[in-house]
């Protein structure tokens, strides 16, 4: 099984503040990779460095065999990203946002988007500013999935989603992964890691440690969050 993500010695600082220190990790094709750790540990910094939002100080990131700096746009064609805060242009309708994302990708995603909206119960006629946090998250899921990417990156995806939609969301991930996709799941929810992840890593104070198994109990999980 080849690596979809290869991060070597990634270091990113925000001025004098610590971001991530010497992070190295590999994620294999077909994996659902759990990314856990306390707030401010560096999970989002790692993800944002992978996506090119942040310019890292040293190290290297390869995604799908491509360099994250040189092949930035090519990588994004194959990635579906859902940020922890799902914000869109308030005056646009849901259907317009979904089509906008597809148009920039130069792909006809109408069939897949329709399927996703039906399963996630997304009202495409509403304006973004009329949506609740949970409904904005659902739009974000559609935008991340409609082009059937090879790699999904979800940053705390289930916050604000009701239990039924959470189930549909994980069903969708499982289906896409069975078809050959890979998924990174940054989360604070232990049950998600235990139930869905095939491997996992913990981040604390900017450093990453791979876990032997994602099947962990409550006490062990909470230990990771202690000082």
């Amino acid at each position: 099984m080849d690596n979809v993500i290869e991060i070597s010695n990634l270091t990113k600082n925000y001025g004098k503040n610590r971001g991530v220190i010497d992070v190295s990790m590999n994620v294999k094709r077909g994996d659902i990779f759990g990314f856990i750790g306390p707030n401010g540990a560096g999970k989002s910094t790692t993800i944002r460095s992978m996506l090119g939002f942040l310019k890292y100080d040293s190290g290297s990131i390869k995604i799908l065999g491509m360099d994250s700096v040189k092949d930035h746009v090519s990588i994004l064609k194959e990635v579906g990203y859902m940020p922890s805060e799902a914000w869109f242009y308030g005056s646009m309708r849901v259907s317009e946002v979904i089509r906008y994302a597809a148009d920039i990708r130069k792909k006809d995603c109408r069939a897949e988007a329709e399927k996703l909206c039906e399963r996630l119960k997304v009202d495409v006629n509403k304006r973004i500013k009329e949506l609740s946090y949970g409904n904005r998250k659902k739009v974000s899921i559609v935008c991340a999935m409609q082009h059937r990417p090879k790699l999904f990156i979800f940053d705390e995806p289930t916050g604000g989603l009701d239990p039924l939609i959470q189930k549909h969301f994980f069903d969708l991930i499982t289906e896409y992964v069975e078809e050959g996709a890979t998924c990174i799941l940054s989360t604070h929810v232990l049950s998600e890691v235990n139930k869905y992840c095939r491997s996992a890593a913990i981040m604390r104070e900017g450093r990453l440690t791979m876990l032997e198994s994602p099947k962990i109990d409550d006490e062990e999980f909470l230990k990771y969050y202690e000082e």
């Binding site: 996506l51 090119g52 939002f53 930035h72 746009v73 090519s74 994004l76 064609k77 990635v79 990203y81 940020p83 805060e85 799902a86 914000w87 869109f88 242009y89 308030g90 994302a101 920039i104 990708r105 974000s140 935008c143």
Partner: peptide
């Protein structure tokens, strides 16, 4: 400011 950057810049556009 409007937190829409993460949506826009996660799309394949430089």
């Amino acid at each position: 400011e409007g937190h829409t950057g993460e949506f826009l810049y996660s799309l394949p556009v430089s």
